[in-house]
Simulated assay, not measured.
Amino acid sequence: MSKLVVSAFMTLDGITQAPGGPDEDREGGFAHGGWSVPYADEDMGRIMVEQFAGMESLLLGRRTYEIFAAHWPRITDENDPVATKLNAMPKYVASRTLDQVEWNNAHLLRGDARGNVAEAVAGLKQRSGGEINVQGSSNLIRTLQQHDLVDAYRLLIEPVVLGTGKRLFAEGTVPAAMKLAAVQQTGSGVLYCTYERAGKPEYGSFELEDYPEKVREMKMVDEGTSP
């Protein structure tokens, strides 16, 4: 069974919309496209190479597929590890509107009669191996989250706040506990964090029924005396 991993560039306030350029995604009047570009450096480049090297296949929504397919097939340098991997690896495209996909080793992933692709992705996870990685594809990611299909997140968290735009975790995401499996910092101040599923959220309370007594006991312990 495959592990489904979402990779994303993300602002401190959770925005993932249009990190790579002004015209990448203007939906909703978004005017901050390209916010990730100033933080690109050698460290980020190395991280991206490592990230793509570990993928077995790629899962994309229509918009991200069209952006990728218009760019990466034109990069034919055999010394470019990202282009070489992307152009060769299996790519699955979730779309209700495309009739065909022409990028090498790309395949249309059809949903059910209602256009729901979740069942098709669940089937893909069952019959595939290794890591299925999702890039961009905000609408697709929302569907995957609503059906509890995401196993891990690899987030490049960048030191910028935008206040508006599409967020990674939207309303309807199935609650899940996560654990921080790895973290790196780039020279430009980006945190590269890997979060993996850790079951369901647990809950508690900081309310103290006998608050004054508890405070007194904690103060005495702090002072090295016994209650």
Results as ranks from 00 to 15, higher is better:
Lys85Ala: 07
Gly14Cys: 05
Lys85Gln: 04
Asn87Lys: 10
Pro90Cys: 06
Leu162Lys: 04
Ala53His: 08
Arg63Ser: 05
Arg216His: 11
Arg26Ile: 09
Leu124Met: 07
Ile141Met: 09
Asp23His: 11
Met89Tyr: 09
Ser2Leu: 05
Asn116Tyr: 06
Val93Asp: 00
Ile67Gln: 08
Val161His: 02
Arg96Tyr: 03
Val82Arg: 01
Tyr192Gly: 07
Glu66Ala: 08
Glu24Asp: 07
Tyr211Asp: 15
Gln185Ser: 09
Val215Tyr: 12
Val82Asn: 01
Leu98Asn: 02
Lys179Leu: 05
Asp112Phe: 07
Val161Tyr: 01
Pro22Ala: 07
Ile75Met: 14
Leu59Thr: 02
Val174Lys: 14
Pro22Cys: 07
Gly45Ile: 12
Leu144Glu: 01
Ile15Pro: 10
Leu109Ile: 04
Glu209Thr: 15
Phe68Pro: 00
Thr186His: 03
Met178Thr: 09
Ala182Gln: 11
Thr143Met: 06
Lys166Leu: 10
Pro73His: 01
Ala170Met: 10
Gly163Trp: 02
Ser138Gly: 11
Gly187Ser: 09
Pro73Asp: 01
Met178Cys: 05
Arg167Met: 06
Lys85Gly: 05
Leu180Phe: 12
Ala118Arg: 05
Glu56Ser: 08
Tyr203Trp: 14
Gly130Met: 13
Val5Tyr: 01
Pro73Tyr: 02
Ser205Asn: 14
Thr143Leu: 03
Ser205Tyr: 13
Asp222Lys: 15
Gln17Asn: 05
Val183Ile: 12
Ala177Val: 12
Leu208His: 15
Leu60Asp: 00
Ala53Ile: 09
Thr11His: 03
Thr76Arg: 11
Met44Leu: 13
Ile15Gln: 05
Glu27Asn: 07
Ser57Leu: 06
Gly163Ser: 06
Pro22Glu: 04
His32Lys: 11
Trp35Pro: 00
Trp103Leu: 06
Met10Lys: 05
Asp77Pro: 06
Leu59Glu: 03
Glu207Leu: 14
Ile47Trp: 08
